[in-house]
Design a protein around this nucleic acid. Structure first.
Lengths: 124, 124
DNA sequence: TATAAATCTACACTTGACGTCAGGTTTGAT
DNA sequence: ATCAAACCTGACGTCAAGTGTAGATTTATA
C-alpha cells in the first residue's frame, strides 16, 4: 500500500510517517524507480507498536532502538542474547513503572477517602 | 527555604522551578521586599507530585489544573464534590494505564520466551 | 568591609515531535 | 491526452518543556 492508505489505516499522518522513516523507526519495503513508498501490513503493526511505546513514555529515539526486537523473524540467531538482555531490561522498567503507578494509585485513593470523610462530616 | 535548597532537595533545577511558577504550578509563600523566593515543605511535596503526574503523561497545563486538589486544606467544603469527581477520574485513568502496562508487560514476556526458545533450539 | 555565592529578571536558545507550505513528479480516472 | 489527486523533497514554523546567559541585586562569609 502507499503512504496515504497507511496513514488512513493507522491515523498517523504521512508527514509523521516520513519523519519516523528518517529516524529509522520503519521503512517502506520498496521504492522502485518512481520514488513512491510502498508499505506492507507490518508497517501498520509497527506504527501501532510505536504508538503503544510512546504511550509508555518512550521517546522516538528509545523506540528506534527497540522496535526491531518486536519484528525480528526467526532466522538470524546472531545477537539473540543481546536482544534478550534488552527485553529483560524493558521488563524491569515496565515493572518499575507499574509499581510507581500503584503507589500513585493508592495516593489518590487516600485523597478520595479524605475528601469523602470531609464531605460526610460536613453533611452531619 | 530559598530556591537553591528547594532545587537541591527535589532535584528540580531552579530554572525549572521559575518556569513552573510562571505556569502556576507552585508559588513561593512569600517574597518580602528583597525579591527572593522563600518556600516551605509543601513546595517540595508539590514538586514531587508534579513529577508523578508528569510520569503519568499529564502535560504541565493539565497538572496546573489539578495539582491544587492534592493540597487543599480541610476548610472550604464547597466544591469538594467536584474535587472528588476529578480524583475519581484520575483513579480510572491510572487503572487504565496500569492495565495497558500489564498488557505491554506480557507482550515483552512472550517475546522473551520466544527468543529463549530460539536460543535453546540453536544450542541443540 | 569586601567579596564570593546565591538570587533576581528578561530574553534568547534548544530539543523533540511534529505540521505547513511550495514547487515538482507520478498515478489514476475520464 | 489531460487533469486532479496522490506523492515527493526541502525548508521553514510551531508548541511544549525546559536551559542558558547577562547584568543587576542580595546574602553570607572571611
Amino acid at each position: 500500500m502507499k503512504i496515504g492508505e497507511l496513514a488512513d489505516r493507522t491515523g498517523v499522518s504521512h508527514r509523521t510517517i516520513h519523519y519516523y522513516e528518517r529516524l529509522g523507526l520503519l521503512s517502506p519495503n520498496q521504492r522502485e524507480g518512481t520514488g513512491y513508498r510502498y508499505f506492507d501490513d507490518e508497517a501498520a503493526k509497527r506504527l501501532e507498536k510505536i504508538g503503544a511505546l510512546k504511550k509508555l513514555g518512550l521517546s522516538l529515539d528509545e523506540i528506534a532502538s527497540v522496535i526491531d526486537l518486536y519484528f525480528e523473524d526467526a532466522t538470524g540467531i546472531r545477537g539473540k542474547r543481546k536482544v534478550l538482555e534488552i527485553l529483560k531490561a524493558q521488563l524491569d522498567e515496565t515493572d518499575t513503572k507499574i509499581a510507581e503507578l500503584r503507589r500513585f494509585r493508592s495516593d489518590i485513593e487516600a485523597n478520595i477517602a479524605r475528601i469523602e470523610f470531609l464531605i460526610e462530616e460536613a453533611e452531619r
